[in-house]
Structure formats: structure tokens, C-alpha cells
């Protein structure tokens, strides 16, 4: 069993609040790993720790066995991490397609001189990037919105656009923070299909989600958080049967 990502004793405190407390777990390569827990359980904080937005108060994160301590988000992106946000982080000053193109940043020719002079190699790279971005928009079901400005898209479309942008970097690990939040049943079903197709591409998925039906249906393993601590971890069946989970979380729902 190879772990793409591992944490040991990962901890983040804000003032006195232990948002994430002493978490040690691993995510298998190729798996869909869900993270669930009530509001304020520390799910988003955990994602922010894994992607370098926050630095741990204690403990560490390893990706492919490499300690990621001190690496800023853009370096972690270079290690194959990509993510979406619970609160949409779309660039409203750009077109929908350009948002996805930004996702390919690390795979582009980033020479400043080539950009200023619009050298032929850069032009070809840009055309290729544009084509791939359009393909990705098609992949997430936004194929007919490529020409639109981002700020004209609906909320549901923007959620997908973020996924397309995150996929554009061709990541090893995709972290989704509540991709189905605020979506209706049809849209949620479409997101479920989309996540399955992403996993089929061989991309490891970490999925934070409140929609239990979705989580139980597609996850290989589930990590249950409560007050920043690990309450349970295992397959959907194991987690569903776990007494601690039933009393603290599922039972209440």
C-alpha cells in the first residue's frame, strides 16, 4: 500500500482553538478519500495545511515521502497538488476559459521576454493551452460557455469551472472542498459522475463534503473529524458502523 500523502501529528491552533489536532493519516494513491465532520470540525483548515496555505503549528505533511514543511502553495502545486475552494475563488476579471488556462501555469513557457515579444514558440504554447482548457471545460460540462466572462456564469457553473482549473495542472492529487455545497440534486449527481471520471484518470481525490449520500457512494475511505481530532477512519461501511461516529455525527443528522 503506497501512500501518496501522509501526515503525522498534524496540528493547527488559532489562539486557543485546536482547529486540527494531532492528525496522523495516509491517503492511498488512486483513492477517493473523503473527509467529513460537522461545521467547524477543521476540514477546511486541514485542506489549507495540506496545500500550504497554512503552516502547521506542529507535525508534518509528506507527499510521496517528501517533507513539505516550509513549501509555499505554488511549490506544492509543482509537486502535483491542486484544489478547489469552499468559497469560490474565481478570477472574475477574466474569461471562463482564461481561468482554466491559469490552471496550466506551471506547464507553460513562463519567460517574460518571450511573453513581451510574443515569440512564435509562446504563441504555439498558448494556442495549445487554449485548446486543452476548452477540452477541460467540456470535460466538466461547460463546453458551451468557453467564450463567456467568468462573472456571467451561474454559481453551479463556477463550481465546475474551479474543478476544470484545478485539473488543468494535470495534478496527482486533487483536493475538493465541498464541491456540491449549494447545488441541487441534479447538479450534485453530475458532480458525483465528474469525481468518478476524475478518479478514473488516475488522480487521487481528497473530498471534503457534507452530502452524506455523495460521500458514501463514491469514497474508498472516509476520515471523520470532530473538533479537529480524528473520530474514525475507514471504508464507508466501517465508518457507518462505528459507534463513535453514530453517536457524535451521523446519529445527530
Amino acid at each position: 500500500m503506497t501512500h501518496l500523502l501522509e501526515t503525522s501529528n498534524l496540528t493547527k491552533t488559532f489562539g486557543g482553538v485546536h482547529a486540527v489536532a494531532d492528525l496522523s493519516f495516509g491517503v492511498e494513491a488512486g483513492a477517493i478519500q473523503a473527509i467529513i465532520g460537522p461545521n467547524g470540525a477543521g476540514k477546511t483548515t486541514l485542506i489549507n495545511l495540506l496545500t500550504g496555505i497554512y503552516t502547521p503549528s506542529a507535525g508534518d505533511v509528506r507527499i510521496d515521502g517528501r517533507d513539505t514543511r516550509g513549501l509555499p502553495p505554488h511549490r506544492l502545486a509543482g509537486l502535483g497538488l491542486s484544489r478547489t475552494f469552499q468559497n469560490l475563488q474565481i478570477c472574475m476579471n477574466m474569461s471562463a476559459l482564461e481561468n482554466v488556462m491559469v490552471g496550466r501555469h506551471l506547464r507553460m513557457n513562463r519567460s517574460f521576454t518571450a511573453a513581451l515579444l510574443r515569440l512564435p514558440a509562446l504563441r504555439r504554447g498558448d494556442a495549445d493551452c487554449r485548446r486543452r482548457a476548452a477540452e477541460l471545460m467540456d470535460f466538466v460540462g461547460l463546453g458551451d460557455l468557453t467564450e463567456r466572462d467568468a462573472d456571467t456564469l451561474s454559481y453551479g457553473a463556477l463550481k465546475r469551472l474551479e474543478i476544470a482549473r484545478a485539473l488543468a495542472s494535470e495534478p496527482k492529487l486533487l483536493l475538493l472542498d465541498e464541491p456540491a455545497a449549494g447545488l441541487n440534486a441534479n447538479e450534485t449527481a453530475a458532480i458525483e459522475t465528474l469525481i468518478r471520471r476524475v478518479a478514473e484518470l488516475g488522480i487521487t481525490v481528497i473530498l471534503v463534503e457534507h452530502d452524506m449520500k455523495l460521500v458514501m457512494a463514491i469514497s474508498d475511505r472516509i476520515l471523520v473529524l470532530d473538533h479537529g481530532k480524528q473520530l474514525a477512519i475507514g471504508t464507508p461501511a466501517e465508518v457507518r458502523a462505528d459507534p463513535a461516529v453514530i453517536s457524535a455525527y451521523l446519529g445527530a443528522a
Binding site: A77, N93, L106
Partner: peptide, 19 residues
């Protein structure tokens, strides 16, 4: 595009690999 992304969402630009 990276520059415009910094304007649109600094954190989104960062996780897309933009320094």
C-alpha cells in the same frame, strides 16, 4: 494571465502554481 489571476484571486493564483 498569472498577473490578472493575482488580481482576481491571489490564493487561487498561488495554488495554480503562480509565485
Amino acid at each position: 494571465r498569472a498577473l490578472r489571476a493575482v488580481h482576481g484571486s491571489d490564493v487561487a493564483a498561488q495554488v495554480a502554481g503562480v509565485n
